[in-house]
Amino acid sequence: MNRWLPRTYLTLVYLLLYIPIAVLVVFSFNDSRTGYEWGGLSLRWYEALFNNRAMVRAMWNSLWLALSAATVSTLIGALTALALHRYRFRGKNVLNGMLFVVMMSPEIVLAISLLAVFLLVGLQLGYVSLLLAHVTFCLPFVVITVMARLSGFDERLPEAARDLGANDFTMTRTVLIPVIMPALLAGWLLGFTLSLDDVVVSTFVSGPSYEILPLRIYSMVRVGLKPEVNALGTLLLAFSLVMLILSQWILLRSKR
């Protein structure tokens, strides 16, 4: 019972999470344009997707942006959390306050104010401006996650490391990083998810050179959401799952 109860619960939640996704997958093979009727099995939306070069390009742009934004924000966020946790410096509350403000700012306010700053410094709108904006709104999520992990952390470990002659950098690398690893993973995933789905901020800070997927999807106002996006979602899901299984398999093999 002690083993089966948690597993049953996990399975149940996963099922609930994946039901809408399953619906999406099924209807990506539906010949009919809308989801409320079954028009027979068809690959027409996949064909349409492959001919929709702009959408495919936007998807790659989005993936690349999310990957880089999540990585950079995890890096900076982790350093921020460590600084908040370990160092004494002036303005700690100001720093905390700024992170709170980012979390609380409605997207449109963040979008327009960031655009104003980019215009002030003359930054060309495109990948770089998107990256700066995305890292900024992902940052508090990483910091809060890492801080939560650090707050339960045994203070004597770094002390001991220091007494053994480790400098700050070495201590951080050998003692702190391993401890916050799960939080880094969690923070990275949050950042990736947030970045991949942002539309309002991106609407304002992107330029013609770099269009991302959520913009294209949310802008299908005149014609309504096209079933191609179901096909795209399905492919993305399949790709993620294959990568996951592959990496797990490699991991297990290397451990053996």
Binding site: L115, L119, V199, P208, L215, R216
Partner: peptide, 22 residues
Amino acid sequence: YTTYDSNEAMYARLKLLDDSAA
């Protein structure tokens, strides 16, 4: 081909971007 999701957003952007309109 880049996209917007409302006239309002398109207008606000073109207005803000004024000098560096792309």
